[in-house]
Computed example of a mutant assay.
Amino acid sequence: MKFIEAKEIADYTPYAALVDALECAFSSSFESPKRAHYEVGEGGSTMLVMPCWVDDDCFGLKAVSVVPLNAERGLPTVSGIYQLFDAKDGRLLALMDAAELTARRTAAASALASRYLSRADSKRLLMVGTGKLAPYFIEAHAAVRGLEEVYIYGRDQAKMQATCEAVQHLGLDARPVGNLPDAAANADIISSATTSKTPIVLGEWLRKGVHLDLVGAYKPDMREVDGTAVSKASVFVDTHDGVMGEGGDILQAIGEGVFTEADIKADLASLCMGKHEGRSSAGEITLFKSVGAAIEDFAAAKLVYAGASLAAL
């Protein structure tokens, strides 16, 4: 049994390979029961339990805690463990750091969606939010699109600057921005990863052809965009059941009567299997809403395990 720490997980999951692994996984026949979601402790803390398996190969289980107040304590928001088992004999093959695995697979899922939904000539990314995930999303999006400029928006100037420095190695023109409406109106891709309960990005700011990547708002009472943004966009989701259970941006737009469940164009599996073409025109506004899926963890864990096994030879 291997114990695989965060540094190794990063080493074994370069984004180009990880995005391909997710695409292959979403194209496969997999089983992923609805994740168990429990409110625990104080301050909106959550425990998630996510199983997944493919045929008789392997099966995996992720158990994580999400504690928003940890950001104020200088502690990680997400902590947990991923367990990978051999499905034939039940042996525990590996234990992995779930926080790093989750961060990388979440960013890779957004990049995978961007392959189908953002314009191929996208050059400018606006990153909304300066938490731990921000550099992951910038690097993942840069792996599938020829980005040149990155605008970084957050509430804290020091964190915006730190995010810029964290992605310097990518060779991008990354800089903090103070005027969010102007930055949004100039962006080709807008990626938002916050825990906001009120809209940050407004539909009236969006120009034709922009792609929205919404990865925060993982509870029904959270939202990062207003109903106008949702109603103006062609909406795609990572998984239908997950978003309809937890995706606050979509659920609140439905509650306002500006969007319906039937308006969702497709999920990632449909895109990867060619059942939907994705973006249909250069001027189309596209929106990808993600709340996380166990198949993403499973695909990433298998890639990590393969890398660790090769390294041991």
Results as ranks from 00 to 15, higher is better:
L22Y: 02
Y82M: 01
S65L: 06
G74L: 09
V19I: 14
D57W: 08
Q83C: 11
D57H: 11
A21Q: 03
A17L: 11
G41V: 01
A21S: 10
G60M: 01
E39D: 08
A63S: 12
V19A: 06
M50F: 00
Q83W: 09
R73L: 15
G44S: 06
W53D: 08
P76K: 07
Y82C: 00
V49G: 00
A21Y: 00
G43L: 09
D20S: 12
G60T: 04
D57C: 08
S65W: 08
S27A: 15
F85V: 00
A63E: 15
L61I: 15
S28Q: 10
Y38Q: 07
F59W: 15
E31M: 05
V78I: 15
V54K: 14
L75W: 09
L69I: 12
P68I: 09
S32E: 15
L22A: 03
K62G: 00
P33W: 04
F85K: 01
G43I: 06
F26A: 02
A17V: 09
E72C: 07
D20F: 07
P68F: 04
A25Q: 05
E39W: 06
K34T: 11
S29F: 14
S27I: 07
L69S: 12
E31I: 12
L22N: 00
S65P: 09
C52V: 06
P51W: 02
V54N: 09
S45C: 11
R35H: 08
F30Q: 05
V49M: 06
A71P: 04
S27K: 04
G60N: 03
Y38I: 07
A17H: 08
K62D: 02
D57P: 01
D20R: 09
S79T: 15
G44Q: 08
G43R: 13
L61M: 13
C58D: 12
H37N: 10
S45N: 10
L22G: 02
G80T: 02
L69F: 13
E31K: 06
A71E: 15
L69T: 14
A36H: 07
F26I: 13
P33E: 03
S27E: 10
G80D: 03
M50Q: 05
C24K: 12
F85W: 05
A36M: 09
E39L: 14
A63Q: 13
E31F: 07
F59S: 05
D56C: 06
S28H: 04
L75R: 13
L75D: 06
S27M: 10
E39I: 10
S65Y: 13
S28Y: 07
S32L: 08
D20A: 15
P51C: 08
M47Q: 08
Q83R: 12
F26P: 01
S79M: 15
S45M: 11
